[in-house]
Amino acid sequence: MKLTATVAAIALLAAPAFAGNVEPFVAPEPVAVDEPVGGSNAAWLVPLIGIAIIGAAVAANQD
């Protein structure tokens, strides 16, 4: 009886060790995102508006 219980316990504990596939893991290739070339870049718009506001304030105070 002890031998049967021991074999059952070993079989239950060893089952996860044999689960899965024996083939080596192959990682998926990373996805490359290409940014479009050209287009509008509005990063220059905010500093230009700031310079225009400062210029307008300086011109208004020249009175």
Rank of each mutant, 00 (worst) to 15 (best):
A14P: 00
F18D: 00
I49S: 12
G55A: 15
G50N: 05
N21E: 08
I49R: 10
M1D: 09
P24H: 05
N61G: 12
A17W: 07
V7Q: 06
A27S: 14
I53V: 15
E35W: 06
L13N: 04
A17I: 10
P30N: 05
M1Y: 04
E35N: 12
V7I: 15
A32G: 02
E23R: 12
A59L: 14
L12A: 15
D34V: 10
P30W: 02
G20F: 01
A9P: 00
P36V: 13
I53G: 07
A8S: 11
V46Y: 10
V7P: 00
F25Q: 11
L48D: 03
L3K: 06
A32F: 08
Q62H: 07
V7T: 13
P36G: 06
L13Q: 09
L12I: 15
N61T: 09
A52W: 07
A15N: 01
A42L: 14
V22N: 07
A19L: 12
A52S: 13
A56I: 07
E23A: 13
A27G: 08
A57W: 13
A19Y: 06
V7M: 12
A9E: 06
A56Y: 11
P24W: 01
I49G: 11
N21C: 01
G55T: 06
F18A: 08
D34W: 04
G39L: 07
L12Y: 04
E23I: 03
N21K: 05
A52M: 13
V7C: 09
N61H: 10
P30D: 03
I49F: 14
P47D: 10
K2Q: 09
P28G: 07
A11N: 05
P16L: 07
I10D: 03
P30I: 01
E23C: 00
A5F: 09
P16T: 08
S40A: 09
A42C: 02
N41I: 00
V26F: 01
A42K: 06
P24M: 03
A9Q: 08
G55S: 13
V37G: 04
V31M: 12
A43K: 05
L45Q: 08
V46A: 12
L3E: 06
V58H: 03
T4V: 14
A42S: 14
I49K: 13
V7A: 15
F18N: 02
I54R: 00
N61Q: 11
A27H: 09
D34A: 14
E29D: 12
P28Y: 00
V26L: 05
T4R: 07
A56E: 02
P47R: 09
A15Q: 02
V7L: 15
P24N: 09
I51Q: 01
A60T: 03
V26E: 07
G20H: 01
N41G: 00
P28H: 02
P16I: 07
T6W: 05
I54K: 00
D63R: 15
P36S: 08
A14V: 12
A15F: 08
L48Y: 04
P36I: 13
A8W: 07
A32I: 09
A11K: 10
I53Y: 00
K2C: 04
A32D: 08
